[in-house]
Design a protein around this nucleic acid. Structure first.
Lengths: 343, 343
DNA sequence: CGAATCTATGAAAACATTTGCAAAACTATT
DNA sequence: AATAGTTTTGCAAATGTTTTCATAGATTCG
């Protein structure tokens, strides 16, 4: 039986100390303050670490007030082009700072979101990030009461209850609508995801509706559809609208995935985009620019948002002096091939 | 100053005990063995927990040999349609069993992968999942030496060094090629991602080449391209091949993203798919079926793989009796609109 | 050469929790 | 009312690490 193992079968700092013939404190110091050690001792310890296969135990460090060096991220779903892009950049930025990401998804269920937050807090994450600004009162209370550094990603709003990094989805909706209006469209269809528990979609729809109304454009009920975040469903949903002889000249979609569905539906129905129909997206997902026709959309800089959010939360964890607690990322109109001036 | 807080400002079990007027052990038991407590005591404690806002500290539990209830996942990148799907289902299955996912990405760099593995081990994950079966010797050694439950996802191979759940990418490549051969194609182009450090792509390419060779089909060097996992690049890369007067009648792509790029390139170049060109993908990503034309591909059941992998690792963590240590998921040919029999 | 100063190392307390063991508080049985 | 048995609770040790304080050696200097 190997004496270099603790009760759980993993070598611990004691095993290293024994193997190196030094005290426990010295081993600990070799990790945390190597400059205090005699080079020879350091070498002895390094070799012992190698020999016994020691890996530091964060749990034990955490008990001394050390950070866990983990950040929790709670998202509606990982499996979603634009979130994936965000998650990747967020995680990469954390990695670059020695942090690790704990992730949990709730499937657009705000009660589950609360549960996930609790779960992450049990793991004593040093900070927490959530998507959007719409959360259950319980979730907000929890974050405030635990006094945990937090950041809301994706939505920007002045006076938000949490520090936030993102865009004004209201503005995104407005810009998308304005682009179609500028091109002379008046017969406009709307296809948006369900807005319940999804303030991003809610705001976009609101912004778009507002802009249209202000321009005196009314959208008949049967030109206003709901479709999930899903090409197949969006294709199906829009197909019905496009089959009709009285169809809109343009369709404004809540996101680029829906726009893709609409483009496929149009193609499948023998309509040429943009000649017969203009299609507008929101988001500018990967591939939207390469689509044929290329998708006109409002660019949301997911990558940038992820990086900025990570920096913000890390600063906050490190207790850096008053960083701005809200950061608005710019939206830009990407006018491309799927929209055209009406004749 | 609130006396219900520990040195770090978070209420601990002592605070709860004090607030409930019971001993620390009793509070601990109320979480771990509630059936041992008098219902009245339990209630008192529950209320105290509420009152002081206590959240259990996993780090401290871990020190007693408790599981961390975390599983580490190391992927090349999160930001990738098919991995995202896998990650989502893997994570959901873990969640359902009370586990949390720690995730790290290495950007197709096997040395970084090793670093990430170490990092996750410092967090004392109960098990670890990696993508594919190609890893540095150091990584394999590390996993073996730490004796950590592990699973390799995505690739299946008999006699693999790790338990694995996935498909035979070799077979996928072969099936894709066979489909084109069955349709009478002999002039076939290949566009695959870089195969270095990516055994999935390597195997697919190998399988495809093998099948073609066996059928006596030779692929000229300028019909064999490398493209990253990226619609834009794939579109650009294939455009050059398609412009040539002597172009293949079919293109076999290493994955569906590349296939999408090729489809857009064809469209952009005025070629009709499948009339002028057949395009074959591998993977069957979300949206491939809805594409216009729908993409012929080899279906890899990402969702299923994620769930099975999660179950396997959880079983392994729970030390369940000898589960099969390799699980092959079925590949099916999805013959759709982007491929057609040659005239 | 002895005192003073530095440098390198070790001993032990502290961190938040779990758990084996023992004591206390009830219940049931005579 | 005393005893035996059962249920409920508390005490204290243990977990793996960091860190403060103390000490042993090494170095400098008059």
């Amino acid at each position: 039986m190997n004496k270099d193992l603790n009760s759980k079968g993993k070598p611990d700092i004691v095993a290293v100390a024994k193997a190196a013939g030094v005290s426990i404190s010295t081993v600990s110091r070799s990790f945390n303050h190597p400059e205090l050690l005699k080079p020879a001792t350091r070498k002895k310890i390094d070799r012992a670490v190698q020999r016994v296969g020691y890996i530091r135990n964060r749990a034990a460090q955490v008990m001394h007030g050390r950070r866990t060096a983990t950040i929790g991220l709670v998202v509606p779903t990982i499996d979603n082009a634009i979130f994936a892009e965000l998650i990747q950049s967020f995680s990469a930025e954390l990695d670059a700072n020695g942090f690790t990401m704990l992730i949990a998804s709730h499937g657009f269920d705000l009660d589950r979101e609360y549960q996930m937050l609790r779960k992450l807090m049990e793991h004593r994450v040093d900070g927490i990030a959530v998507i959007g600004l719409e959360h259950s009162e319980a979730s907000y209370k929890l974050i405030e009461q635990q006094d945990l550094p937090a950041v809301a990603i994706w939505n920007y709003a002045q006076g938000a209850r949490l520090p936030c990094v993102g865009v004004q989805n209201l503005k995104a909706g407005r810009m998308a609508a304005q682009h179609l209006l500028d091109l002379g469209h008046r017969d406009i269809g709307l296809i948006f995801p369900e807005t319940d528990g999804n303030d991003r979609a809610k705001d976009r729809l609101l912004g778009a509706s507002e802009a249209l109304q202000r321009a005196g454009v009314e959208v008949p009920a049967d030109w206003q559809l709901e479709a999930p975040y899903n090409i197949a469903e969006a294709k199906r949903a829009s197909a019905s609208m496009l089959r009709h002889s009285s169809r809109p000249t343009a369709i404004l979609c809540g996101n680029d995935i829906i726009a893709q569905g609409v483009l496929f539906a149009a193609r499948s129905g023998g309509l040429d985009v943009p000649r017969d129909l203009s299609v507008m997206g929101i988001g500018d997902f990967k591939g939207s620019a390469e689509f044929e026709p290329s998708i006109s959309t409002i660019r949301i800089p997911a990558r940038q948002i992820g990086i900025v959010a990570a920096k913000l939360i890390l600063d906050s964890v490190a207790n850096l002096p008053e960083n701005p607690n809200a950061f608005e990322c710019d939206l830009v109109l990407a006018a491309r091939g799927s929209t055209i001036r009406i004749k």
